[in-house]
Simulated assay, not measured.
Amino acid sequence: MADKDLKLETKCYDAMEYGYLYGLNKKIPDEEWEKVKPYMRKWKRMDFVEGNIKVTGRPEGYRCLEEDVPKVEEILGITNTLAKRRANIEEKMSDPIKKVQFKDQVYNWLTMLFKSGTQPKQDLSRLAIHSTKIYDPADGFKNGAEDGYGELFIYTPHGMWYIINNCSPGANKALNNLESKFGGAIGYRVMYEDTVDTLIRVYTEENEYTGPQLY
C-alpha cells in the first residue's frame, strides 16, 4: 500500500543552471531507495556554478531534476504527486472568487511564518546583489518604492526574505532593520522550505521584480 504522506518536495533553487531540485520528504526502505537511486544524484557544492552562490536552500544531498520527478513518483507509487498539488493550486487560482479567498489565506500563512523568523540588520542592496530571484506582488514595489510602499520576496543563499517597504511619510522608521536607497524597510528572514516557497509563488503569482535597480 502506498504511503500517502510520501512525496517529493523542493530542496533548493539554483538560479544559474538547474532550477528546482527535488528530494523525498522522508526516509524510505533501502530496497525502495535502490529502485530510484539512478534518478537521485548526490549533489555537492562543486556541482554548481560559482560554488553555491546562486543557490537558495539545501543543495547538498540526494536530489533529482524536475524532469525526473514523475519517474520517481511512479516507481515509489507516490499518490501525492507534484502534478496533483499544482493542479489543486491552479483550480483555486482559476476561479476569481476562490482566488481572492485563497490568496488571502496564503498571505496570512506567509506573514505568520515569516514573523516567526529572524530580523537581522541588512542592506537591501546586498540582498539584491546576491539574490537568486526576487518576486514583487502585483508590481507593488516597482510602482511604490519611491513613495515608501510595496513588498518583495527575495531568495538568497542564506535564506528567504519578506521585505516590507517602510519609508513613506509618517512611517515608523524605528521598525526598520533594512537600509535601502529608498529610505529603509522591515525585513523578515526564514530558511528555505518547500512550503514557504510554494506559498510565495502562489501569493506573488511568480511576478518577478522589474523595477528600479535596488543597488
Rank of each mutant, 00 (worst) to 15 (best):
K54Y: 00
M93D: 02
T111D: 11
D14H: 02
E50I: 00
N165R: 13
S168R: 14
A145Q: 13
V202C: 14
N166T: 07
L124W: 01
F48I: 01
F114D: 06
I154H: 00
C167V: 05
F153Q: 06
T156S: 11
L175R: 12
N108A: 15
V36W: 05
G61W: 11
E9S: 04
E73H: 07
L65T: 05
V100G: 02
I97C: 01
H158G: 07
Q101G: 08
G170C: 03
G140S: 15
G150C: 12
N177W: 02
E17D: 12
L175W: 02
F114S: 03
V72W: 04
M1V: 12
D47E: 03
G184Q: 06
P29F: 08
K115F: 09
N52G: 01
E179F: 02
Y215W: 09
L82E: 13
D5T: 12
G187C: 09
F153L: 07
D30R: 12
K99W: 03
G184L: 05
R58L: 13
N108R: 15
T10V: 14
E205T: 11
K71T: 11
K103M: 15
D136F: 08
G159R: 05
R189E: 08
L178G: 05
L124V: 01
K142T: 15
A171L: 04
E17M: 09
I53M: 11
V100S: 13
Y22M: 06
H158E: 15
N88L: 14
P157C: 02
M93T: 03
Y188Q: 03
Y192M: 08
E74A: 13
G61A: 12
P29H: 08
E73R: 07
L110R: 10
A83G: 03
V100I: 15
V106L: 09
Q101Y: 11
E90R: 11
A128K: 00
G211K: 06
S180K: 04
E67H: 02
A83V: 11
W161V: 01
E206L: 05
I53C: 04
R86Y: 09
G184A: 06
Y20W: 11
L24P: 06
K133H: 01
N207F: 07
L65E: 12
E32C: 09
Y18R: 10
V106H: 10
L175I: 01
P96R: 10
N177S: 04
Y22C: 03
C167Q: 09
M160V: 15
H158F: 14
M112D: 13
Y162V: 03
M112H: 13
A138E: 15
C64N: 06
D194C: 09
N52R: 05
I78F: 02
F102R: 11
T210A: 13
K103C: 10
V100D: 14
D197I: 01
K54H: 00
K121H: 13
E74R: 11
N166G: 07
E206K: 14
V196D: 05
C167K: 05
T156H: 06
